[in-house]
């Protein structure tokens, strides 16, 4: 043990570069945005007069922090945030993706993985097919969905003889647009989950299934009473990471609707998400950074809460 202790400084040197980068690009921004969320009317404009003011402390009506000025500390940003209709829409859209599309994706992925695991021939082929979306770029995949559901020449409309029905083009309803986003999220999320479940399934001892077979266990019961419990650590892992990922949903919306839009022409905030909302705050000139930071704090809080609930629930349902 002592020998290892003496090597502590070597480990520190090896870790230093990545730690330094993490400090710059991860830890400091987290701390910084946490602080900014609680600064009222924070205005970030690093120019000469601001630096001068901050050094000389001339204007007593402002306080200064990191090259920006603010009027006080409080929860004004959060009030602004929750009064903003766009943010409430973003919350609703994100919640739908998280609580509807993630569970559906996990269940479908599980069923496909079990099916894949039980076939013998062509398994490699199907594994490749289902893994393809994972190596495909999110935006490219979004473009595919975009053209699939195009109002005039989309394959779906042509196939089902519904040309003129707008899914993602001008005039689309929330339900239709969300349906496309939902399908897209499921398709995009399947690949990785299937691979993880497949590897999990292959680690389950075949003898459990033989024992079940000898006891004449019906297939469905084998799935619910043996496969799912034995796979539960994997299911928990996938569910937690997918929930986190889904809370941060952003690029898929952009992928479907195109640059800078969260909805069809004429209603470009139809499917805005929390991350999209936060991102927009930094884009709007003259808007304080504080609201964006507050938005990310809210997102952080929600993810933390949901994850804690999942961890608690897992104590009852997950068998290691």
């Amino acid at each position: 043990m002592l020998e290892y202790k003496r090597d502590g400084w070597k480990a520190a040197i090896c870790l230093a570069p990545s730690l330094l980068l993490m400090c710059i690009f991860t830890f400091w921004p987290i701390i910084n945005s946490f602080i900014m969320a609680f600064l009222n009317n924070y205005y970030f404009a690093l120019n000469r007069s601001d630096i001068y003011n901050s050094l000389m402390d001339v204007d007593k009506s402002f306080a200064y922090f990191m090259g920006g000025r603010f009027t006080g500390i409080g929860i004004q940003n959060f009030i602004t945030l929750f009064r903003d209709k766009d943010f409430l829409i973003a919350l609703k859209n994100t919640a739908f993706i998280v609580f509807v599309s993630v569970p559906v994706t996990v269940i479908i992925a599980l069923l496909i993985a079990v099916a894949l695991n039980s076939i013998k021939g062509l398994r490699g082929f199907f594994q490749t097919v289902f893994f393809l979306p994972y190596v495909t770029n999110t935006i490219a995949l979004g473009l595919v969905f975009n053209s699939l559901f195009h109002v005039d020449y989309g394959l779906i409309n042509k196939l089902f003889n519904m040309v003129g029905t707008s899914w993602i083009n001008s005039g689309a309803t929330w339900g239709r647009a969300m349906f496309v986003l939902f399908l897209y999220s499921v398709w995009d999320g399947l690949a990785f989950k299937i691979i993880v479940f497949l590897s999990g399934l292959q680690n389950i001892d075949k003898q459990y299934y033989q024992a079940a077979q000898i006891d004449a266990t019906p297939r469905w019961r084998v799935f619910t009473r043996i496969t799912v419990p034995l796979l539960s650590p994997m299911i928990l892992y996938i569910t937690i990471t997918s929930f986190m990922g889904a809370f941060k949903v952003y690029s898929s919306v952009i992928g479907i609707f195109g640059t800078g839009r969260y909805g069809p022409v004429g209603n470009y905030k139809l499917l805005i998400t929390i991350v999209g909302y936060v991102y927009d705050q930094f884009d709007v000139s003259g808007m304080p950074f504080g609201v964006g930071s507050a938005g990310s704090m809210v997102l952080f809080g929600i993810i933390l809460l949901i994850t804690l609930i999942q961890m608690q629930a897992s104590k009852r349902w997950v068998h290691y």
Binding site: D205, Q207, Q210, A211, I214, R225, P229, L230
Partner: peptide, 11 residues
């Protein structure tokens, strides 16, 4: 059938 490693359902 009693398996060599028993194959008891661990959960």
């Amino acid at each position: 059938l009693v398996f060599q490693n028993y194959a008891l359902y661990p959960h």
